[in-house]
Design a protein around this nucleic acid. Structure first.
Lengths: 365, 365
DNA sequence: CACAACTGGGTAAGCGCTTTCTACTCGGGA
DNA sequence: TCCCGAGTAGAAAGCGCTTACCCAGTTGTG
């Protein structure tokens, strides 16, 4: 078997002259030119057969197909993208794959993407705004045809401006972007109704007889956390609860955050009758903290979360939460970014958040 | 603002002659050539400055940088990949993002990938072998520099051969692949010790006094499920339990699968003292089924799973399982595929599976 | 039977970059 | 003063494809 050498430059040389007609082994992938040669047709014809861009007559057509098969030809998608001036990849930026909130959304996005025979670039920021920005640049540079960014926006002005600027550049170059969270970047947006959801939750909890609440909130700068907190306050006010003595603890937006905030709460003294964790993973953390401190839910304290993530199905007591159709949100965002013409003005889709009362919140006597 | 027209062919024309020096607005992304022109240097120089491939003298260097900044230039990564003949993307094929087993592994892979400033293509097969094959082709065609496939291999000969063939082609073209599961494809492999893990579990359960078992197994063709079943049988035999009356139920490898198999089990008559679900999501499903049927775990029946996935932390009773360092496995696979020279023979890394006894399995009096 | 209107093949000009190769300028030893 | 390298800029030849353009050879129409 003759192995072709590479020139020192890395460019292929024509030195394997001794190679027989079937000396296919070479390093690097098989090229279209080789398929064409093997089939005895021109490069153009081979390309046309394989990409079906124009009809090709039968003697040739078959030969090309056979040659491609035999040589195990795989077209170079990057080169195709360059030549065609259009890529078939979609970018997806999330905070963390391990968080069920994001993996659910990702699931929805992937479904849509796969239906369209595209592929997805996945990047996770781990809630770091700089990485977020960096990934947008990366995606831009890979000329993704659509970009989906999910995860709460922040109050960080500088970052928001930079990001908006970057996305503007992306849009100017013909890209379609959609965010899942707050509609602040001038892109398409899928916007969960955090505020009204939390408001409704507060009212339901009040109707169960609760008056003394604590909120386990996320970082101050996170809009999602902030909106939910605001909504919750509004709901309480509407029910005539004095918001002044609402306990609000800020911490990480994660399970660990919830766990340590709940621990703080326990340590701080008499518990309220009801605790609202602004998202479910925090609620799960809080539940663990309560459990290990011997605080019973809902007997000693009621607990509610937000998002209604899938793993909630398996916890006891079943957790009261505010349902968000996460997969659907992902799917919807993908649709917005993929099915909208480049000239369309950006759309915002609101997503209702529905309170689901379960066993973790009890009715007060 | 002058907008450049496109020729009917989609190729850019030179018709925007009227454009002033700053008429940057055009459709499509900014090109390197435009940056070069703006900076008054040649294309080559601009390229060298921006990719740092060679030193460029100061008057020019600064001008290029400034021009790039001003025009919001983003290099076309696809074109770079074509020109350089090397891409910076990694492929990751899993069954389902929503399954914590896979999302944990994905998390590990992503960490490694991000450390190296690469990006990842994510594809999910939903356990469909045809899609798996198709995705390998897609990844190949995108010239991913490394490919990580995770998810149990099957007994489907035809598929295995096709897949091996495809991967051979990938390797021949210089790609590095790693699988996480069974080492059967001639690639690098991260191999969880399913059999010995299950064997150890069986022995521990026997030591707790159990003799009558049922196994909720996955599809017959799945090697992971099969290996765990075999190992479990071996463990029982070693402890002198007659394997003949071991109940084995086959179903889906998912939460729903576990749920319906457990329901079957309950319906079938007297329960064994201990049930082994071959993976945790099935165990979670079974737990739900038991709960809703009023069967208490572990009082009425003991339950054990396998994988020790993260959401297990939040269920009560805490579930006995066999721990697998999922994130680490993902990271390890990524390392194998990324840090190994192309000429190295493929390595297989075994991963120990450690039994963790928790509250879902009780000691029999 | 001349003349369109198709078909379907090949040639070559792109796509947006990188990199080799050539050319030039400059400083310093002989 | 001349020559030689070092250093750096630009021209141009790639990378692996697609596709506009051109040119037979066929068919269909009046």
């Amino acid at each position: 078997m003759t192995t072709a050498r590479e020139s020192p430059t890395g460019r292929r040389t024509e030195q394997d002259g001794a190679a027989g007609p079937l000396a296919v082994r070479r390093n690097g992938p098989v090229l279209l030119a080789e398929v064409a040669a093997h089939a005895g047709v021109s490069l153009a014809t081979a390309s046309r057969v394989l990409s079906g861009s124009r009809s090709v007559g039968e003697p040739h057509r078959g030969r090309v197909l056979a040659a491609a098969q035999e040589l195990r030809y795989t077209p170079n998608a990057q080169a195709q993208a360059v030549a065609r001036g259009a890529s078939n990849v979609v970018g997806l930026i999330i905070h963390d794959v391990l968080d069920p909130y994001f993996s659910s959304i990702a699931g929805g996005v992937m479904r849509q993407v796969e239906e369209r025979e595209l592929v997805v670039f996945l990047a996770s920021t781990h809630s770091d705004v700089d990485r977020e920005l960096e990934f947008v640049q990366t995606m831009r540079s890979h000329r993704v045809r659509a970009l989906i960014i999910c995860g709460s926006r922040t109050t960080d002005r500088v970052h928001n401006e930079r990001l908006a600027h970057e996305l503007e550049g992306y849009a100017a170059a013909g890209g379609q972007a959609a965010v899942i969270s707050q509609d602040r970047l001038g892109t398409h947006a899928v916007v969960p109704q955090n505020r009204s959801g939390a408001r409704a939750l507060a009212r339901e909890l009040c109707r169960l007889g609760h008056r003394r609440f604590a909120v386990l909130a996320g970082p101050r700068g996170l809009l999602t956390s902030r909106d939910r907190l605001i909504g919750f306050r509004e709901g309480l006010t509407a029910e005539g609860v004095d918001v002044a003595d609402l306990q609000v603890l800020h911490g990480e937006f994660t399970r660990e955050g919830g766990e340590s905030l709940a621990a703080e709460l326990i340590a701080a003294g008499p518990l309220p009758t009801c605790v609202f964790a602004v998202n479910d993973v925090m609620a799960l953390g809080a539940l663990a903290a309560f459990r290990s401190a011997g605080v019973r839910v809902p007997e000693d304290v009621s607990l509610a979360g937000f998002d209604d993530i899938a793993p909630l199905r398996d916890v006891v007591p079943s957790l009261t939460s505010v349902h968000l159709p996460l997969e659907e949100m992902g799917a919807r965002a993908a649709q917005l970014a993929l099915d909208t013409g480049p000239q369309t003005t950006s759309q915002a889709v609101k997503v209702r958040a529905e309170v689901v009362l379960r066993d973790s919140t009890r009715r007060l006597a």
